[in-house]
Design a protein around this nucleic acid. Structure first.
Lengths: 215, 215, 215, 215
DNA sequence: AATGAATGAGACTTCATTCAT
DNA sequence: AATGAATGAAGTCTCATTCAT
């Protein structure tokens, strides 16, 4: 039985926050628990009051992050019917998240590979949900005649790669503020889902595949 | 000093190939030199005949990879003037590379962070070149009236994120073959650079920035 | 100071019993106080209401065990004069103890080595008492002409090793029940104390000592 | 490929010898690899050139010890037919081993419990062999009419417990030299296998089992 | 060029023990 | 008397790196 306000309630958030900082800075394998402990104001051994081992620590952090983002998206779509508005809301949450919560975004993207088997699959599952949500928005827009796509599955990953990529280059106090970015990306995504002219495929493709793809 | 036909010429390619495989599979910090050695048919100590230390090994691998991609792009653009054709060629090389050379693509994307200071900056410089090449293509297309963009710098990173993202999800023998992918992505990129209707920005953006962005 | 009926009276026996189980199962160094606590329904810190430290805990357990066995032997010999009957009673208590109280027997045999200096000597002293008791029985029997031995001190440890060894192999519900075992061991011990024919010593002993004893 | 006389050939025997000393002195859980290393003239990490982990180290040590003793016994029985002579030889090897090789004897007796599952069963199997060898000697002697026993299986463990017990109390330069001990134990074992008078069982046995055996 | 063995630093983890509540 | 959290020391094991051969 835990007393309300016990020291656990104070310490874990500190560890969590420090952890995300260090995971962002050094990566999972590059960070170490001594550092996590000392920057959290603890001895290394004390961390084990909060998780079973380093891998589970990572799993908890990553899982919490992904669930929070999913929740934010869910909130933003809640009660909205119009596919174009749903899309705009989806994009805006993603842009804000990948800029304002850059560290969390990077960590949850990069460190899934370091999870222990069981947790790995669990979180891959969570990641699939993002695709499903966007896929549903697009399918409804296509059905409603407001979007046009060649291959829905592909456009989904293309958009997601583009949006999650933001965290990789965005710098706070950079050239563009977040609101502007939201506008720009909304524009880009909208174009991606519009009808386009017939395009010509690059010539000599077969030869180029040989050329570029030879190990 | 390298003797022609010395065992270096046989062994280094093996180490290099094994290294890319292991970097892809475990990441830089997660791989280890004993494994690299044993999978290359050597003892760990012998590796030091081929590089000075683990970090330099990584730097060499990543640098070679990035230079090869730059070269491929350069070859594909060589002698081509038309911005739309240049764009198609750029896209096709990128799609092929990030599918057929998935391992190299992932390694060079993920492990730059682990480079020692000096080499880090060098390779960040190489990475900038990709942006400059694409930027130039777009600027010329805009100047020629065939592309329309809101913010050229942004569209560059957006497109690059989308294309480099391919390596993260592509699986050989998956649903779409490479040629098809090239077509699809060419289509998408083309749309991204086309004129679009005025789009509405998501409502309540200020509030959402607060909501999503609170740590 | 112990309050009658305080929770100490309930909790210590639980700890004690759990402790013997864990000492038997894992050994002193292999058991740990967190496990002792959790299997006793406590947190680790609470154990320190019952002992000063892990070593003292062991000392108490082992000491109690040895004193109980000594008491049982004492009870069984009490008022019995005849050396042969005293011997039979001694053997029967030892056989019963090392079968029915197997865990205690093993623990007190194995863990003396882990005791802190002072308690170590104390318990070695207790162990000597067993030898003295048996020695006295044998000496009286020899004096009375009912036993015959070559070397009383040796026969004492030989018999004790044989009897204490029972705990190492005995399994409840095994082939022989305890009553039968008592009979068998009484028979064996009796023979060990009888007159025997002259025996021949193994030949080539000096050489064999060299051969077997070379490190 | 190992060069003859490589440093492995010098180092492992040192580690082995030091290991037995430390296992004897502190037990498996009580010893530590840093100490093993430093007393072997190495750094702790270097030990891992010689075994995979601490448990495997123990398994190797114990296994080697038991195999050596089995070999010594086998040598001593080789070509000897007469059951009484075989018995004398068996006893003499055991006595010598458990005195002159006291450390090895103690280690192999005490630490089997700490072995990893697979190796545990393997070594329990080796231990059974000692019983089988003695059992065969006794059965043949009984068949030949030179030994008389109530229960062969029991007398086997009784004798073995007595003999292996020697290592627990023997001190070099003690009162009795090894040759004398061999004589004494041969005498004792011989008596144990002789015909004895009918013995009376301890009275009140049922009650005593209750009394002594209550937890 | 390659090997086998060694180093030394550091990582994760365990655990007896303490102590404020 | 019990709890939950913390400490600090220590232990096993890993690994980049070195070096004599």
């Amino acid at each position: 039985m835990r007393t309300v306000g016990s020291s656990r309630d104070k310490t874990w958030p500190i560890i969590r926050k420090t952890g995300i900082k260090l995971l962002f800075r050094h990566g999972f394998q590059g960070m170490n628990l001594r550092l996590l402990a000392s920057e959290s104001g603890l001895q290394a051994g004390s961390l084990y009051n909060y998780f079973d081992n380093k891998n589970e620590f990572l799993a908890t952090i990553v899982s919490d992050i992904m669930k929070e983002l999913l929740q934010q998206i869910s909130d933003a779509l809640d009660g909205v019917q119009d596919p174009e508005e749903r899309l705009r809301n989806f994009v805006s949450v993603m842009v804000i998240w990948h800029t304002k919560r850059k560290k969390e975004a990077i960590v949850s993207q990069s460190e899934i590979r370091n999870l222990p088997k069981g947790r790995y699959e669990e979180l891959i599952g969570l990641r699939k949900e993002f695709e499903l949500i966007l896929r549903k928005i697009i399918d409804e827009g296509v059905a409603g005649g407001v979007f046009r796509v060649l291959d829905a599955r592909l456009i989904v990953v293309a958009i997601l790669n583009m949006l999650t990529g933001i965290a990789g280059w965005y710098k706070p106090n950079g050239r563009l503020d977040v609101e502007t970015l939201v506008g720009e990306y909304t524009d880009i995504v909208t174009k991606m889902l519009s009808a386009g002219k017939e395009i010509e495929v690059a010539r000599g493709l077969r030869r180029r595949v040989q050329q570029v793809g030879r190990a």
